[in-house]
């Protein structure tokens, strides 16, 4: 398979106006991906599928990612004149990066036996703007998986032939895989709660005065 740079250059040459970024993955898997702008995504996808040297004819996986709003702190050294003397002072600035949702597709070429190529698309925001172009017209295998992304992450795919919920029922309004999803408060006894489940368990445990407030109770009983 060609390198990501080569594929990116080919696609940008072939599709006029397409803007493709490489999202590096410094982890052990080294699976960097291409971030495709939403406007030209379908054209770029068609190009990746149809170009004889690439021929990505199989979309094996489509999934979603939820990126919450986050604040990045930066420290920059700024020269300032303090009391007539020029000094270097560390200045911290906070940059707020708004959250967005992402759809990730893993592409393979069965014909040329190469892959995976990972492409991503990002929504404008996590609210009303959570829309992306559907790649189902390009790869039919994305149909059910895009429905699943819609169901669990709430990304609306424009151009999808049958965008309905697939795992949850139609009346359900939440998107359970989003990081800010709040579960119904239905905790039940769990033999070995840990981590998040332990936190949920603590909210439901009956009060334990002999341990949790021993001093107070003891003081009351003496008086």
């Amino acid at each position: 398979m060609e390198t990501l740079e080569q594929i990116k250059n080919r696609a940008e040459l072939a599709v006029r106006g397409a803007k493709i970024d490489i999202v590096p993955n410094p982890g052990p898997s080294q699976q960097s991906s291409l971030l495709i702008d939403n406007e030209h995504a379908v054209e770029v996808a068609k190009f990746l599928r149809d170009h004889p040297a690439l021929n990505f004819d199989f979309c094996s996986n489509a999934t979603g990612v939820d990126w919450l709003d986050r604040v990045v702190k930066k420290t920059t050294k700024v020269k300032q004149v303090v009391d007539g003397v020029e000094k270097e002072i560390d200045q911290t600035s906070e940059e707020k990066i708004p959250g967005y949702l992402e759809a990730v597709y893993h592409l393979y070429s069965i014909q040329l036996k190469h892959g995976p190529l990972i492409i991503r698309m990002r929504t404008a925001n996590r609210g009303d703007g959570a829309r992306l172009p559907s790649l189902t017209p390009v790869w039919r295998s994305a149909e059910l998986q895009e429905r699943e992304i819609f169901d669990l992450y709430g990304i609306r795919f424009d151009g999808h032939p049958d965008l309905r919920r697939i795992l949850m029922w139609d009346e359900f309004v939440d998107h359970p895989m989003r990081k800010d999803y709040v579960q119904p408060d239905d905790f039940e006894w769990e033999p070995t709660p840990h981590d998040q489940v332990l936190e949920r368990a603590k909210q439901h445990y009956p009060p334990r005065p002999q341990l949790d407030g021993a001093e107070k109770i003891a003081g009351q009983s003496q008086s």
């Binding site: 009346e171 309004v173 119904p184 709660p193």
Partner: peptide, 22 residues
């Protein structure tokens, strides 16, 4: 329902297990 099944359990027959601390 919009968030869960309605009702989440049959209140006439179902008794939730007693909560014990692990």
């Amino acid at each position: 329902g919009e968030h869960d099944l309605n009702p989440p359990a049959n209140p006439k027959t179902y008794r939730p297990p007693k909560l014990e601390r692990a």
